[in-house]
Amino acid sequence: MQLIYFAWVKERIGKSEEVLHLPDHVGTVAELLDYLSGINEIYAHALSNRAMLRVAVNQTHVGLDHAVKDTDEIAIFPPVTGG
C-alpha cells in the first residue's frame, strides 16, 4: 500500500510517503493504525492521539472501520484547516 502523511503527522513520522506491505491480519483503518503504531516509537507517538487523526482511502474520507487493501493509497492527517 501507498501511505501518505500530511501536516504534523508527516513531521512526526519524518517522511511524506512510503510504500509498505499490508499484513494479512490488517483489514480496517483502525487495524492499520494499530499496526503502524507497533513499528516503533516514532510511529506510536505520531499516531497516538486517534481523535486527532483523519484517514482517506483512495482520496476519499473514510471512518476507522473502513476496509483497506494492499493496493490502496491511504493518507493519514490531522483534521483539515483550509478555507
Binding site: 493518507a75 492527517f77 490531522p78 483534521p79 483539515v80 484547516t81 483550509g82 478555507g83
Partner: peptide
C-alpha cells in the same frame, strides 16, 4: 463543506516559531 472536507492544512509562522493551526 470546504472548511471541513477539503484536505488543506494551515501552518502559521510567528516570531515564536511555526505551528499547525488546530481545527
Amino acid at each position: 463543506f470546504l472548511k471541513s472536507k477539503a484536505p488543506f492544512w494551515k501552518k502559521e509562522e510567528t516570531e515564536g516559531g511555526a505551528e499547525w493551526v488546530a481545527a
